[in-house]
Nucleic acid binder design. Structure first.
Lengths: 215, 215, 215, 215
DNA sequence: GATGAATGAGCCTTCATTCAT
DNA sequence: CATGAATGAAGGCTCATTCAT
């Protein structure tokens, strides 16, 4: 019975098997980042990993599953970096600023993951046009952000905007910042992040507030 | 002598040829929207247009040129709709709001163009990962927005933010709005647009201002 | 009724039609010479001639007929140059030498025709592998040469070799000379021709003869 | 990791892979011989070999490499047959005769190789018209022949002709003999070869010599 | 007579996937 | 567990040819 063939059966994986999967996922990230999703054939990924093409098929049910794991892995790595920092912010308004700066901070040294994500997001589309990855993966992120926003609103440090719109706009602006950075490698990412944080803060703070409290 | 073989010579096109090109571009938009860039093969596009595959090669030098024309066409159509409305706004601060609402207004009835654009933007990538379309095509848009922003700053209706960051963030938030709408067809696009306009206005207006002047 | 559709009906051609055919044949020669037979598409030939693709199909029944006419035309032009010179040779032994030198003389200033011929000869093959052009076109040439050789044998100025083998070898050595010249443009064609003439003379002259009589 | 993708690294090949490559090369020879280079598509070659089209792409980097290997293989097979016989000849003058007879002897039972070579030589052309195969492949052959000729001249068994012209003419006459034979299957190849050997001997022997010494 | 337009077959290649070893 | 080998579909593209205008 092949490992990849079980959608939910979740068999225990051997250590060596996990290692191989991690190695392949990592090679996939590098490959998509370098060559784009369209050119990231299993052959090229295997070559990057220094293994044979068949191995990938053995460990993953197909290209789709591999890409799912890639996205999963990147997201969880980002979360591991960002969440602890955000948790330390004094309040939800400050957390917004921290969130933006931390993500930028992380991505500055992990461009490959950025490129891979972007490549996969738009490269893999279901026929009906609904990008399956973006949705499946973004929803939990939106939820988490919204929860924080709502808490801030209740506590009075954030004004009463639509949390979903804010979450979507925030995430989009961050993505846009990265996209711009990718095409303009000399762009000052940290300065951009700081400026964006200011924009978001102004759009989210209560009417009476000025910007004093959040730096 | 095939039409597509002229690299730059810009030969005069017959009426019927223009019609065919338009028909093919339109079919390409529909196809990319429905199936994603990766699956938008010339065969499928031809099928959508009800013509033979060779016709496309006859009228366009290749898939790349076709996609260039698609992007070009969509952008100019959007501009034709949005720019006149923006020009009527009383000042640059109001223009920001108008811009967002107008684009949303247009896109509400032109979802396909949206999907096609998104598909092409990330589907066509140069090996180094720099999406060639997005950059080439976004730059003029950024420039136009920036000019307006700077004018507003000089006139004092907008505060002194970094115009490039604002332009990128604005455009991203709009794109994000559409992306969300695409995956959530029941989402209230106009309400989202109004809310986004408010966010942007708050982040762009001078410190002393309140939201009174722009509604 | 289209001109090209008559295999043997030989309708009278208008002057303008003949001009077009000549123009197309000439463009075909240039194209095959430059790009090789495989790359000499009707489109490219039409482009060379500055006319539309359809014109060729109108005047010739197909690519095959066009190529037939090309070969025909080149052969007859060569014959027009070579035969008068050969006819002036004092005897058949001298004629051999003259033949070689005259052909070389002609080809030196008509490389394109050479290249075109070579391209067509091997480019167009019938499925059974018997190059149809070479045979159909070479036979009369062999016949003419053989006739002269036989006359020389009867008159005693040539020894008693197999005339067909001599004709084939002579023609091949000439072709080989040109082929070599084509790939080595700096090669001294005239010197080669003179040397080859000596080789042939030695192999064809009667046993008792020395080379004195033929220079 | 596909075998064909290694540009020069010369990886060790498995036995089974070599077998497949040989099988494909052999099928290619048969196909080109039967249908001509232009019609020898990978599809037809695969069909001849009884395998799927993809297999060829798997084992060879492309059609070009396959054809290179075909030429290589044929040449080395011919050399393996001819060279030992030539080496046994008493002197260089006799070697010339042996060379012609041996090649004819070999080709008599390997017509397909002949046809394939001819097809490839002129089928594959660089745009500038310089047949890449013929030159690259013929030069070493010319060199080898010339060396022998020069040795014969120094030893006094051959007269003092231009060795390059002789090599080209000899090779051409042999090729012409085969070409004729191909189009005239009933032609007596051995008789032709004997007659050609006589022609060459006469053109190459020293002035004083008669044909006595070489029969 | 000539053209632009359209066709559809065929080309070489790449690819995800399967399978025997 | 891993590999090399094979498959067959699909991709973009070129081409000779046909035909209405």
């Amino acid at each position: 019975m092949e490992p990849g063939s079980r959608p939910s059966g979740r068999r225990k994986r051997t250590f060596i098997e996990e290692a191989r999967r991690a190695q392949i996922v990592s090679a996939a990230i590098r490959t998509v980042a370098e060559a784009g999703y369209a050119n990231a054939s299993l052959a090229r990924i295997a070559q990057h990993a220094g293994i044979s093409k068949g191995v990938i098929s053995y460990h993953f049910s197909g290209k789709d599953e591999l890409m799912d794991r890639v996205v999963e892995q990147i997201y969880s790595t980002i979360a591991d970096f960002v969440l602890p920092r955000v948790a330390e912010a004094p309040d939800e308004r400050a957390a917004l600023r921290t969130h933006i700066l931390a993500v930028a901070d992380y991505m500055r040294s992990n461009r490959e993951q950025l490129l891979a994500l972007a490549g996969i997001f738009n490269g893999v589309q279901t026929p009906v046009g609904a990008p399956r990855y973006r949705m499946a993966v973004s929803e939990p992120v939106y939820r988490a952000i919204e929860e924080r926003l709502r808490a801030g609103q209740e506590r009075g440090v954030l004004r009463d905007f639509d949390v979903r719109v804010m979450a979507v706009s925030l995430q989009s602006a961050i993505d846009g910042m990265f996209a711009y950075w990718v095409t303009h490698p000399d762009h000052d990412l940290d300065a951009h992040a700081a400026e964006l944080a200011e924009l978001i803060d102004r759009s989210a703070r209560p009417d009476s507030a000025d910007s004093a409290g959040s730096t």
